[in-house]
């Protein structure tokens, strides 16, 4: 598959992630309830940034101040790293002689 197709998959996935949470809020509630058993006592919704610096500070600051931006950054970073690492690993596997092509579907 070409890189363009991979990017199309990526874009469709991203648009899906941005639309669906708004429509199906009920699933979010379940997400919170799954984690809910410990949430009331231990879960911190804010991070203490006073002792942090560099990338740790940047992440924690974004987490504290703009949760939407944090969610977009997390999704984008995961998508970009996932695509990039897949591309690199593919190159390494090809060099090792593990190139894949269309296979026959034997049971």
């Amino acid at each position: 598959m070409s890189t363009t197709r991979a990017l199309v998959i990526l874009l469709v996935s991203l648009s899906f992630t941005c639309v669906i949470p708004v429509v199906f809020t009920g699933y979010n509630e379940v997400c919170s309830s799954e984690a809910g058993s410990e949430q009331s006592t231990e879960f911190r919704n804010k991070v203490d940034t006073s002792k942090l610096s560099g990338i740790e500070y940047l992440i924690a600051d974004m987490y504290n101040n703009d949760r939407v931006l944090y969610a977009v950054v997390v999704t984008l970073v995961m998508a970009t790293l996932g695509t990039g690492m897949a591309f690199l690993t593919d190159l390494v596997l090809k060099a090792l002689g593990l190139e894949v092509s269309r296979i026959s579907h034997k049971e």
């Binding site: 949470p21 979010n28 919170s32 992440i59 949760r67 969610a71 997390v74």
Partner: peptide, 16 residues
């Protein structure tokens, strides 16, 4: 993809 975005929105994803 949906889960990643919605959980991050709720502050439940450790990015690092």
């Amino acid at each position: 993809a949906y889960g990643c975005f919605t959980y991050a929105l709720k502050g439940r994803v450790e990015l690092l």
